[in-house]
Simulated scan of single mutants.
Amino acid sequence: MQWLKYILALMSLVGLWFVGLSLSGFIPLPASLLGLLVLLLGLMWLKRIPPALLKVSQFVLGHMLVLFVPATMGVLLYAEKLADNLLWLILSIVVSTVLSLGITAWICQRLWQPTDQPPATPHDD
């Protein structure tokens, strides 16, 4: 009967993707991300991870490389177009990476207060 639990866990992961797919009509996010958010909320509500779901998730994550084969083949099919625009691709990747890291660092500096110092108080001048 253990295999039945694994099948149900796999079906629940696929079902959550379908939930995300239906939510993506209302929320402009990818279906897989919305399904993961619903899964996260469900696991937070349960306050534990069911053992069968953990085992199935570890197996799927261990074989995730197979899921990237179509994307890799797409890159190979459009290699000529990518080569024509290589400079712009590299430039956009570098600029977006620098911007996202810079904005993240700036937000962290603003939000993170060291615990060994008391909060700043206004001075009366």
Rank of each mutant, 00 (worst) to 15 (best):
P30C: 00
V38N: 00
L41T: 05
R110V: 11
L101F: 15
M44P: 05
L89I: 15
L36Q: 08
L65N: 11
W3A: 09
S24I: 02
Q113A: 13
T121I: 12
S100A: 15
P119H: 15
W17M: 12
V69L: 09
G74F: 10
F26W: 14
L89F: 15
I107L: 13
P50G: 06
L76R: 09
L23M: 07
D116P: 05
T97P: 05
L54F: 08
V69C: 02
Q117R: 12
F26P: 02
L16Q: 05
G62D: 06
V14D: 12
S96F: 03
I93Y: 06
S100Y: 08
L53A: 04
M64W: 13
P70F: 10
Q113N: 02
S96Q: 05
S12F: 11
V56C: 03
M44H: 07
V38I: 07
L13G: 07
L34Q: 04
Q109S: 00
L29S: 12
I93N: 06
L4K: 07
W106H: 09
Q113T: 14
I103S: 09
L65W: 14
G20D: 02
S96Y: 03
W17H: 15
L46D: 07
A105D: 13
V60C: 10
L37D: 00
H123N: 13
T104L: 12
L34F: 04
S100Q: 12
S96P: 04
V66T: 06
I90W: 11
P119E: 09
D84C: 03
L86R: 12
Q2Y: 05
F68C: 01
I7P: 01
M44I: 11
I27K: 10
H63R: 14
C108Q: 13
G102V: 04
I90A: 13
K5E: 03
L4R: 04
L29H: 10
I27C: 14
N85A: 05
F26E: 00
W3Q: 14
L37V: 11
L77C: 10
V14W: 11
P70Q: 02
G20F: 03
W3I: 09
P51E: 01
W112Q: 00
S12M: 14
L76H: 08
I103G: 06
S92Y: 12
G42E: 09
V94D: 01
G62S: 12
L77R: 15
